[in-house]
Simulated scan of single mutants.
Amino acid sequence: MQKSAIITLQQALKLNANYVDGVLNTQTLAACTQWLQSNGAADTGVNWQSWPPQRQAVLCLQLCCQQAGVNPGVADGWWGPQTAFAAEQLAALQQGSQVANWRDSFSTPANPHLWPLDRETELRAFYGEPGSGLIKIKLPYPLRLAWDTNTTVLSTQCHQKVAASLQKVLEQVLQYYGFDAVQQLRLDLYGGGFNLRAKRGGSSLSTHSWGIAFDFDPEHNQLKWDSSKASFARAEYDYWWQCWENEGWVSLGRGRNYDWMHVQAARL
């Protein structure tokens, strides 16, 4: 759990200011247990008492979000993108800002390939160990490196289980837009694929570690930008997202309204 999220949790628990420090200290963990016992954690239907203290703390934060009217996803004690976004929303509410729910009408994309949830246990079970199962595929159109637009690549690495799907998406994009429009819309600006690393601001592995996540045009779709700033939120990109979502790929932008550059073959 990120330091900022721990501070949000500590404030939700109404801890003494001396203990609001972004650390899962003894006082915070004890307050989590007490809060869970007093606020209907039994209704989650899970045996949370047997969980490690850190997972109990995440569950506590998720339920605090729910209580404040913010959707953290499934209350399961696991830290992930949806919980992280909900924590940011709760923090904004604590500061007196009104945060609108993002796309209440947004429907979860189909999942024809049965991509797993974005959790390490599920990802390992489905894709294997991080960095395994990688193959090189030829791209339907050249991609310019976002950090060096004078360099183009004609192939990339990805996990073998997503290779055919990835190629299908990009082929459909090229057929629909044509290469000139692909360049004009910056759909050929490649921000990266396989990268064995932790999630930004977290300790768990990024989906990039399995070669199942890709970033596009990061300069115009920055991590914390919402739909008011991100170019990929505009109407001309609707078909781009339709191609991905028909194959079950998930956009953090479309689903959570941040990190619009990112798409992954893992469910939120």
Rank of each mutant, 00 (worst) to 15 (best):
Q160Y: 07
F126D: 06
D118Q: 03
G131I: 06
T149I: 14
Q184F: 03
G133Y: 00
A181T: 02
L139H: 04
Q184E: 04
H159S: 09
H113S: 14
Q183K: 12
Y127P: 03
Q160W: 10
E122T: 11
D148M: 14
T149E: 11
R119I: 07
S132A: 14
V182F: 06
L166W: 02
Q184G: 06
W147T: 12
D148T: 10
A125P: 14
T156S: 05
L123S: 06
F179P: 04
L134D: 11
Q160F: 13
Q157T: 15
L114K: 11
D118W: 00
L145K: 01
K136W: 08
Y176G: 14
L114R: 12
V173R: 03
L145R: 03
W147Q: 14
T156C: 14
S155P: 07
W147E: 15
K168D: 04
G131K: 09
H113M: 10
F179C: 08
W115R: 02
S155G: 03
Q160R: 05
T152D: 11
L134E: 11
P109F: 04
P116A: 07
Y141T: 06
D118P: 03
G133I: 02
Y177A: 14
G131R: 10
A164R: 01
Q167E: 02
L185D: 01
E171Y: 06
P109L: 01
F179Q: 07
T121Q: 15
W147G: 11
L166N: 00
K168P: 05
W115G: 07
L114Y: 10
P140R: 00
S165P: 10
S155A: 08
Q160M: 13
A181F: 10
Q184W: 07
K161D: 13
G133T: 01
Q183D: 09
A125V: 11
T149D: 09
T121D: 15
L123D: 11
E120A: 13
R124Q: 12
L154T: 01
I137R: 06
H113I: 08
N111D: 08
Y177T: 12
D148N: 15
G178L: 06
V169R: 09
I135L: 13
L154F: 00
L145T: 08
V169P: 05
R119W: 09
F179W: 06
E171F: 00
Q184R: 07
G178A: 01
L174E: 11
L185M: 02
K161S: 09
A163G: 06
T121H: 13
P130T: 06
V162E: 04
I137N: 06
Y127A: 13
R119N: 10
L145G: 09
E120N: 15
L185Y: 01
L145W: 05
A146R: 09
T156D: 05
P116Q: 12
K161T: 05
I137D: 10
T152G: 11
V182E: 00
A110V: 13
S155E: 10
T121P: 15
H159Y: 05
E120F: 15
V162P: 04
L143W: 07
F126T: 09
S155N: 10
Q167K: 05
F179K: 08
H159G: 00
P109M: 07
Y127G: 06
R124F: 09
G128V: 10
P142L: 15
T156M: 15
P109E: 04
